Amino acid sequence: MGEEKKVQEEEMKENTATEEKETQKTKEAKKADKKASKKQKADDLIKEKDQQIGELTDKYQRLMAEFENVRKRTAKEFVQRYDMGAMGVLEKLLPVVDNFERGLQAVAEEEKDSPFVQGIEQIYKQLMGTLDELGVKAMDAEGKEFDANLHNAVMHVEDEEAGENVVVEELQKGYMYKESVLRHSMVKVAN
């Protein structure tokens, strides 16, 4: 019996050792599962955060693009409003320019050297220089083909020497402000 007991004790020790190994393996497996589970949760959180970051980045970029478009549109509207206001003021100055030109044309030849006339000519040149700096340019219509966008035909004449639909005389100067017509040229057109 003593040997049987020893064998049984050894078997029990082996069983206990095997059970302990299995328990150890189970514990290690559980730890590994917990680690894997934690890693999976962390990976899921990272993916979710990355998705949120992507969505927020996209939203931010869209808002910045929209802001830039609004800024550009506002700047363009400001320039347009400024030009409209400037055109209104400049249009009111054109009759003054016309009167200067008529007055200078009416001066008799012997009075052209008088200081008064020379002073008026200097003021006229200064006014025209200022208008030029602002972007106002006189249109030269005479001898060119009639263009309804630039000219206002108030008379038609039969003229064999002039081509058809050609401006033969400019009755009142037209002016451009930058790329826009400030005042149409009043012209006589040949048919």
Rank of each mutant, 00 (worst) to 15 (best):
172 Q>V: 10
35 K>Q: 13
132 D>A: 10
153 A>R: 08
188 K>H: 02
154 V>F: 04
152 N>Y: 10
179 E>Q: 12
169 E>F: 08
87 M>G: 08
58 D>M: 09
166 V>K: 03
79 V>G: 10
186 M>T: 15
105 Q>C: 07
53 I>N: 01
107 V>G: 04
99 N>M: 09
32 A>Q: 07
54 G>N: 10
56 L>C: 06
17 A>W: 14
13 K>S: 12
167 V>G: 00
124 Y>C: 00
15 N>V: 11
3 E>W: 13
18 T>V: 10
64 M>Q: 15
110 E>I: 12
17 A>N: 13
177 Y>C: 01
62 R>V: 05
129 G>Y: 04
132 D>N: 12
151 H>V: 00
83 D>N: 14
13 K>V: 15
175 Y>V: 02
101 E>W: 09
69 N>K: 15
53 I>P: 03
159 D>Y: 03
66 E>N: 13
52 Q>L: 11
127 L>K: 03
55 E>S: 04
122 Q>H: 11
12 M>V: 14
102 R>Q: 12
142 E>Q: 10
170 E>L: 01
141 A>C: 03
18 T>A: 06
58 D>I: 14
143 G>R: 09
19 E>N: 11
39 K>F: 06
129 G>F: 04
128 M>A: 03
58 D>T: 15
106 A>T: 13
174 G>P: 05
120 I>V: 14
161 E>S: 11
71 R>H: 12
